[in-house]
Amino acid sequence: MTSIILRTSTRYMFPPLIVFSVYLLLRGHHFPGGGFVGGLFAGSAFALYALAYSVSDARKAFRQDPRDITAGGLAIALLSGIPPLFSSHAFLTGTWWEVPLPMGGVLDVGTPLIFDVGVYFVVLGVLLTVVFALGEEE
């Protein structure tokens, strides 16, 4: 497909889409959002790229093999269940740490966020595996 309008708009849309996907990921703990939607958004950004240019261009832009990203995401999600075991809680119990920020104040970082990051990558990886595989069939 060679639509100049789509190509140009994709070029401008792409960075905000990725940033927005990360925003959705981070806001997910207290508000609607989370790893699943975030990953879907990021995946759609690359799918849009694949539509506007070509699947091989999108693969190049993605740099990694989507299957590696899926495996990495699964690993992150799995590992996020382990920290609570050290404080003798059940697997996957939400555990929180307070990280002091250099400018003052503290940041709450918890295992649910790590789990969500894992989900983000799994969804991104799976979506792109499917989109790239189907796109290359043509």
């Binding site: 299957r67 590696d68 495996a71 990495g72 699964l74 690993a75 799995l78 075991l85 809680h89 697997f91």
Partner: peptide, 23 residues
């Protein structure tokens, strides 16, 4: 004992992740 019942699920998952990484 808090961990044992979840191991039948997590061990194969960990193995699958490793296999995927060594694709």
């Amino acid at each position: 004992m808090t961990l044992l019942p979840s191991l039948p699920i997590t061990i194969p998952l960990a193995g699958a992740v490793l296999c995927m990484l060594f694709r």
